[in-house]
Design a protein around this nucleic acid. Structure first.
Length: 442
RNA sequence: GCUGGGGUAGCCUAGUCUGGUAAGGCGCAGGUCUGGAAAGCCUGUGCUCUCGUAGCUCGGGAGUUCGAAUCUCCCUCCCAGCGCCA
């Protein structure tokens, strides 16, 4: 939720943000219309309530002085009826105004480029040495603005779908039989690799000041609605039938909601939290995309980074979150590019967002593996998370970034570290202490 | 799931029986004092707005009443005991 005071003081800030995102400005205009009506009505209402309070005291006094209060009582009854009618109107206007307010997106970080379409997301940097099939060199160099470092190969590596079937690592068919498309059984050494990835990421973040939590996997409507936006409800969330509960789509949401309605001490900030959990997603907006394999699935495990901090520091911590994930992928030996997001591609919550996209040689594409968001005070205001400062209680800023989602990272490992005939997969060196083996297959 | 006890401002607590418009302490901020500090003393310290001799606020909602932290009902969360259970 945005800052109403700031909106009243500086409407242009929000109008410009809406325009840059490609949203209409109707919400802002409609808000001001309703706000004007609300001011007029609450003023009249408060005056009437004041009159009532005065008369009420008068009754108290009359009783003490042994005078009859009946005449005053009748007056108050009349006022009560007027108050009841006015309150109904105010409640309606407040609810309409609130709806408009929730439609107004966060103010963009001034660094965000005004542009549209994910093809135009500004490229920031490339890291690594990618294995690139000759035919994909054009795509690779375009996406890295000719800064990509690569090793050329003259064949297309096996897709993870074929490889995992060949090596008996995933059973999609039976998962489909019992649950449907986009479900999977992970088996054997691939499962141990998954545990290794989780443990590696948790250790990595623990060494960098993060506490670790396994969150509730379901949230009630109120907490979920405050932690996220309408788009997530439409595209991602599974509802539990007959209960006020939703399966989480990321541990970001329970971690953010964890501190809702709390006032933190300034000393507690920054608060770095690492969340580990399954994530459940309907993928409603992705019909036909990535239908095979485990790249896009209805549930997967993810290690998430989350930071609560003071407003002045959120840009620095955004950079820290990005650097952490880059370091994890670099240490795994995977090549990636970092992109900044276009104004039109950001979610309602985001002030700014970076993505990390790893090179998948069999697909011949960079694909998203991590998403680093700075939600400034937007999420914290909805969740009412504040801290005590010299200037009174202020809303914290919240930031999040994937540390590592297991399925996508395993796909990346399968596609980048398979041998030529697709008989085995090399385990990244940093994971060997966790897996206890250095090869899958053979 | 059952029984009992609880939820009051950032924290702790009084008020609830007997309805009359949230008392006090801690912490925090400012002032006074001081060479500087501590202590003491004074002031402020829930939210909203149009900033007032204003309105709202006692876990949430509904009811009774001129008036509810207080009485009634429903819900919720916490604690203890019992039951069930991986």
């Amino acid at each position: 939720m945005i800052d109403v005071k700031l909106l009243r003081e500086n409407p242009d800030l929000f109008l410009n943000s809406c325009r840059a995102r490609g949203y209409g400005t109707e919400s802002v205009e409609s808000f001001f219309n309703l706000d004007r009506k609300w001011r007029e009505l609450t003023s009249a209402l408060n005056k009437t309530k004041h009159d009532k309070n005065v008369l009420s005291l008068e009754i108290s006094r009359a009783i003490k002085e042994r005078r009859s209060p009946d005449a005053i009582k009748d007056q108050v009854k009349e006022l009560n009826e007027r108050i009841r009618v006015m309150e109904e109107q105010v409640t309606q206007i407040e609810s309409d105004r609130e709806k408009e307010l929730l439609m107004i997106p966060n103010v963009l970080d001034p660094e965000v480029k005004t542009c549209r379409g994910d093809d135009n997301n500004p490229f920031l940097r490339f890291q690594g040495n990618a294995t690139v099939f000759r035919e994909d060199l054009g795509e690779f160099m375009t996406r890295t603005e000719n800064q990509g470092v690569f090793t050329e190969i003259d064949y297309r590596p096996m897709s993870h779908v074929d490889l995992q079937e060949k090596l008996n690592l995933v059973d999609l068919e039976r998962a489909g039989k019992i649950s449907g498309a986009r479900f999977y059984f992970i088996k054997n050494r691939l499962f141990k690799l998954e545990l290794a990835l989780i443990n590696y990421a948790v250790d990595f973040l623990s060494q960098r000041g993060f506490s670790v939590v396994e969150p509730p996997l379901m949230l009630n409507y109120d907490s979920m609605a405050r932690a996220t936006d309408i788009e997530t409800f439409k595209e991602s969330l599974y509802k539990i039938e007959g209960e006020d509960l939703y399966l989480i789509a990321t541990s970001e949401h329970p971690i953010a909601a964890m501190l809702r309605d709390e006032v933190l001490d300034q000393k507690e900030l920054p608060l770095r939290v690492c969340g580990v959990s399954p994530c459940f997603r309907k993928e409603a907006g992705a019909h036909g995309k990535d239908t095979k394999g485990i790249f896009r699935v209805h549930n997967f495990n993810k290690v998430e980074q989350f930071i609560f901090c003071e407003p002045e520091q959120s840009r620095d911590f955004h950079a820290e979150l990005l650097a952490n994930t880059e370091e994890i992928y670099r240490s795994l030996g995977l090549s990636y590019r970092v992109i900044d997001f276009c104004s039109s591609e950001l979610s309602v919550l985001n002030a700014r967002k970076f993505d990390i996209e790893v090179w998948f040689p069999s697909q011949g594409k960079f694909r998203e593996v991590a998403s680093a968001s700075n939600n400034t005070d937007y999420q914290a205001r909805s969740l009412n998370i504040r801290y005590r400062s010299k200037d009174g209680n202020r809303f914290v800023h919240t930031l999040n970034n994937t540390a590592l989602a297991t399925t996508r990272t395993m796909v990346a490992i399968m596609e980048n570290f398979q041998d030529r005939p697709g008989n085995s997969i090399r385990v990244p060196d940093v994971l060997v202490p966790y897996t206890g083996f250095d090869t899958i297959g053979e």
